[in-house]
Measured scan of single mutants.
Amino acid sequence: KAKLLVLLYAFVATDADTICIGYHANNSTDTVDTILEKNVAVTHSVNLLEDSHNGKLCKLKGIAPLQLGKCNITGWLLGNPECDSLLPARSWSYIVETPNSENGACYPGDLIDYEELREQLSSVSSLERFEIFPKESSWPNHTFNGVTVSCSHRGKSSFYRNLLWLTKKGDSYPKLTNSYVNNKGKEVLVLWGVHHPSSSDEQQSLYSNGNAYVSVASSNYNRRFTPEIAARPKVRDQHGRMNYYWTLLEPGDTIIFEATGNLIAPWYAFALSRGFESGIITSNASMHECNTKCQTPQGAINSNLPFQNIHPVTIGECPKYVRSTKLRMVTGLRNIPSIQYRGLFGAIAGFIEGGWTGMIDGWYGYHHQNEQGSGYAADQKSTQNAINGITNKVNSVIEKMNTQFTAVGKEFNNLEKRMENLNKKVDDGFLDIWTYNAELLVLLENERTLDFHDLNVKNLYEKVKSQLKNNAKEIGNGCFEFYHKCDNECMESVRNGTYDYPKYSEESKLNR
């Protein structure tokens, strides 16, 4: 008799109507990190870190770059004969040098303040090359056809396309004075040089004057150069050297050249137009028929994500570079809930034993079982409120962090190594801060989002509990077992918050 009662009780308990509160689960393989956990499985997430590029040089917003090819900045601007293909260059979106560009200054020497000139050019998007001192009329008392084997072109001695090597005419090199007034309405880049012979005999042979000088002056520039005559090792078949100089001439300003020898005179100059998204990159990537809004030396990035880990040097509207390998923000729920887990921000989770793959029309909802059958029903209101809140948060985070910009490298010469090392340390410090901030932001927001979901499920549970009161009992896994019969209409009233407690209280009292 006792065995019969136990079996009867078990049958009745199993047959009781139930309603459970749960949440969506799926077959997603997404994982995120939080402050407290690593690799948390979630139903949905968004990636904030771009880690792919196309490996190509592309047009930037429809404008092609200027590819210097086998030449570098120095060779292009001075007019190395091997860089003749660059003479027609007028406009570009950015400038590309190759790491091993070999054609710079063909006659050995240095372009002074080269690093600063590169910085200036990094904001130039177009130029006009014009004859600042016409070759045939500007130097009537001097020979202007100086050439050298060091600047050979097609097997013949030649010289820079933008400079003139002035030497004596006959047996004399009379003092020369020439000036140019900038009437271009924009900055003009003027380049010139000073020749330093290897011996007094060479000085006399070329310029006749043993104590020659070169003077260059404008409103913002004033220097006097004296040739340094000295024996030097042979470089590119030359014992002599040429140093090259430049200045930016403001609109309306005048530049005056005065010399008694050794002047490498300007022939062509450049009127410059600035462009905020221009820059110089060093890259071996090849040019393709493609378009982008962000270019790196590795390749083009076409992404609206706020961060990238491809390269710190970028041109155009680019994500911020960070050292992170993963920045994924959760938008959905835990896919593998932890039992009795309390989140960092106070939300209680884990009283549900598992997510439901059968509930596909919402994030949170119900599963019921009664004599009429069983089924899932999503709670659309709480789901939609959660979707709206999380979507707004993700968009806000992306908008705040998605300050796209150009980031170019800084140039230092060989004598500025300590400054370069200090600059690298400062840049590394800023990069570490950006990386830390980005990672911390994602970790915190992921923790908040998961706790937010847990709290929403808990609130749904409490909503049902407050309606049923003692007409049902909690069975410990997020479910309630009714003390009365609850048909589909009754189940719907529980879900929509209109459950009639008094209607079922007498039946429940008897069954309790």
Rank of each mutant, 00 (worst) to 15 (best):
L8H: 00
K168Y: 00
E102S: 12
N209F: 09
G104C: 08
W139L: 07
Q67W: 11
G252M: 15
F270H: 15
K156R: 10
R224E: 05
A269N: 05
T226H: 09
L164V: 15
H24W: 04
Y94H: 08
V12L: 04
I112M: 12
D171N: 12
G193T: 00
E115K: 03
N183Q: 14
E119Y: 10
N100S: 11
L163K: 03
A217P: 01
Y221R: 09
G252Q: 06
P81T: 08
H24I: 13
A25P: 02
K1P: 08
L164K: 07
V40Y: 05
A105Y: 00
H239L: 14
C71D: 03
E102Q: 10
S218V: 12
V96N: 05
T74F: 04
N141Y: 07
T74G: 08
V147F: 05
S126F: 13
V216L: 08
Y207P: 04
H195R: 12
R236K: 06
K59V: 00
A2H: 05
K135R: 10
E202Q: 07
C151I: 02
L163T: 01
S215M: 14
N47Y: 06
T74P: 11
A259L: 12
F130H: 06
Q203F: 03
A13G: 05
I35M: 15
P65T: 02
I132V: 11
A41P: 15
D51G: 12
V235T: 09
K184Y: 03
V235W: 01
H44G: 08
S152F: 02
L49V: 07
K61H: 15
L86I: 15
V6F: 13
R118E: 05
G185N: 07
V149Y: 11
W267L: 13
L127T: 12
A25K: 01
W192I: 00
D84V: 02
S200P: 06
D110M: 11
A16C: 08
E119P: 00
S123I: 13
P99N: 10
Y221G: 01
S85W: 03
S52L: 10
W246N: 05
N47D: 13
T34S: 15
A89Q: 08
S137M: 13
S45A: 10
Y9C: 14
A212P: 08
P134L: 02
L66K: 07
P227Q: 00
S200E: 09
K169E: 13
E202P: 00
G252W: 13
R223V: 09
L78H: 02
G75H: 02
S157I: 08
K56I: 02
A230V: 15
V216S: 02
N145K: 06
L87G: 09
S125M: 06
T226F: 13
V149E: 06
H195V: 01
L248T: 12
I256W: 15
D113P: 02
K61V: 00
G69I: 01
A230G: 05
V32C: 05
L121V: 11
L127A: 15
K1Y: 09
S208A: 15
G240H: 13
E228H: 13
S208P: 12
P81D: 09
A265T: 11
